[in-house]
């Protein structure tokens, strides 16, 4: 089947199987910033924005994107560029595998709640696992980014 979906502002037509999930479609279509980390929607490295809201692309059928908008980190380069400065300052990125998904979640958080508490930041990002950093440095970097420090 065919789906019409806007990816990073561009209209696309994807040729898919009805059972395809968005993660696999995106990687096949060369959106390689979207990573795969698990088989059951539990790690968050595949996070993308669906109509501006963060979702795990491995948990959404591609068919459901018909007429909707999908954003990968390729679509928020400026924000990711800036956020990465804050991550860099705190040493909050190690292997980097979790960071494109994290950037999208942080971007969505900022849009939704520009002044979140520490608890709200944690709550919003729980679904984005990181095995390298121990989280605290990321937390500080994200808070500084949101406060534009």
């Amino acid at each position: 089947m065919k789906v019409n979906v806007k990816v990073n502002g561009q209209n696309k037509v994807f040729n898919i199987e009805p059972g395809d999930y968005l993660l696999d479609t995106l990687r096949k279509e060369n959106y390689l910033s979207v990573k795969k980390g698990c088989d059951n929607s539990s790690c968050g490295v595949c996070t993308v924005l669906f109509d501006g809201k963060p979702i795990k692309s491995c948990s959404l059928l591609t068919a459901k994107t018909e007429g909707h908008e999908v954003t990968t980190v390729e679509g928020i380069q400026k924000e990711a560029d800036k956020l990465s400065d804050y991550f860099g300052a705190e040493g909050a990125d190690q292997c980097g595998y979790c960071t494109p998904g994290m950037a999208l979640s942080v971007h969505a958080l900022k849009e939704e709640n520009s002044n979140p508490s520490d608890e709200e930041i944690k709550e919003y990002l729980t679904g984005n696992l990181c095995r390298c950093t121990g989280y605290q440095s990321q937390h500080i970097a994200i808070r500084n980014y949101l406060e534009d420090k």
Binding site: E74, A80, D93, Q94, G96, P100
Partner: peptide, 21 residues
């Protein structure tokens, strides 16, 4: 010094860099 890593920015920006990419 606490310098940013040489690869962190490009990775966060999603540049293809890992084995499967």
């Amino acid at each position: 010094h606490a310098l940013p890593s040489v690869d962190g920015k490009g990775l966060m920006m999603g540049r293809p860099a890992y084995t499967d990419d």
